[in-house]
């Protein structure tokens, strides 16, 4: 499904600010794999996801989706295959446009945009049904500007937009980190429902060890631009938060954010 082969990313090469954000990272995902990604600040998690999405160009290496090489494809051309939910709830939706317009934009993700009306009444009905399944009370507010919604509502809407046309690959980069714990749980629950119902291939970055263990069938730990630990299936199920903390300590990574998680 997804093949990341020896990907390296260098920011500001040959300057005093040169930064090797990814060092020859390889990762293979099968259809339906749900991989949680953990690691300290600056480990390269976001860079990995951005490289897959196409917002960051790989300096070296190759990325293939379903066997076709996308390494040189710009982000908006990959959007038909790859959809994403950002950490910042403001980033995933157009705040000046209303709910149904946002959903309609997502409905034709990766397709040609024509002079056809953006939201037909049939689609509005369809959106209403999708929204009522979220139980956020948004189904009666299709004409409400997204900018007026709460962060949690916006993030739930972004998740719906990212998954309504099943993408080949879903990228979640700390998509609940900006939400309060209760809302974060709700959005995570929603994530689990959707991904398991759709057998959705997913990469999810999180700083929360328990979430990283609870969700998904595989886990990778990153440090200094490399994948330093990988667990899947039964091995992942047996892992505990303590195991992960021990791994972090063994590489000298004990930053507060990890310990608090």
């Amino acid at each position: 499904m997804l093949d990341i082969v020896n990907i390296s990313v260098v920011f500001h090469p040959s300057t005093p600010n040169e930064k090797h954000a990814l060092n020859s990272v390889s990762l293979h995902l099968d259809e339906g794999d749900f991989v949680t990604v953990i690691g300290g600040n600056g480990a390269g998690k976001s860079t990995l996801l951005n490289t897959v999405a196409g917002t960051v160009r790989a300096t070296e290496g190759k990325i293939a989706i379903d066997g076709s090489d996308v390494t040189r494809k710009p982000d908006f051309k990959r959007a038909g295959d790859v959809s994403r939910v950002f950490q910042d709830p403001m980033k995933g939706t157009a705040g000046d446009m209303n709910i149904e317009e946002n959903l309609a934009l997502a409905m034709s993700r990766g397709k040609r945009r024509t002079l056809r009306w953006n939201v037909t009444s049939k689609e509005a009905q369809q959106f209403k049904e999708m929204l009522s399944e979220l139980h956020l009370g948004l189904e009666d507010r299709l004409n409400c500007k997204v900018g007026l919604l709460s962060g949690g509502q916006r993030q739930a809407l972004t998740l719906l937009m990212a998954t309504m046309n099943k993408p080949k690959l879903l990228l979640l980069d700390e998509h609940t980190a900006a939400l309060d714990p209760k809302t974060a749980d709700k959005v995570l629950k929603m994530t689990e429902d959707i991904t398991s119902r759709n057998n959705q291939t997913t990469l999810m970055v999180t700083h929360n060890m328990r979430d990283a263990l609870r969700y998904g069938n595989r886990l990778i730990m990153m440090n200094d631009g490399k994948i330093i630990f990988h667990a899947s299936g039964e091995e992942k199920k047996k892992l505990t938060v303590q195991d992960l903390l021990n791994k972090f300590t063994s590489i000298g990574q004990e930053n507060d954010r990890i310990l608090l998680a």
Partner: peptide, 9 residues
């Protein structure tokens, strides 16, 4: 929101 627009292709 250009980021959102590009993410929608």
């Amino acid at each position: 929101n250009p980021d959102m627009a590009r993410a929608q292709g």
